[in-house]
Amino acid sequence: MAGRQIYNPNGFHNMEKDGTIIGYEFQFKAQYYRGITLSIVRDIQIEVDGEAAAREDIRVTVNGEAFTLEEMRTVIDPEYRWEFGDYATVSVKKEGGLSKGSHHIKALQIIAPSYMPFQVEAVCETDFVME
């Protein structure tokens, strides 16, 4: 279901380490109506300008702690919930990051909440400018 704008328009940045750009990051909210126990997140898939990120290159940071998607499978701690309406920071390893200028991101959030006989998938797209 196409829904609310979830991206932080000011959240798109390249990540730098020791003078080298090692990837990019952005912030988005969960496309759901309540906070999420991280372990029910089944997958987050990311494409920028049509190029898919490898699953193992993705990290999700909630409350200052970064998790791989595999690590998130076991996170049921109350202090590391993706609270309703709050941004999580997603970082993606990519040599050289993203070029300056306009880009398009398409992300898929897949969760398995309590009562659904199927998983809930939310596609979230937006255009953004890397400065």
Binding site: R34, T37, S39, I40, I76, S114, Y115
Partner: peptide
Amino acid sequence: IYLDVHQFR
């Protein structure tokens, strides 16, 4: 209340 029965993976 919800009971997320899939939370223990």
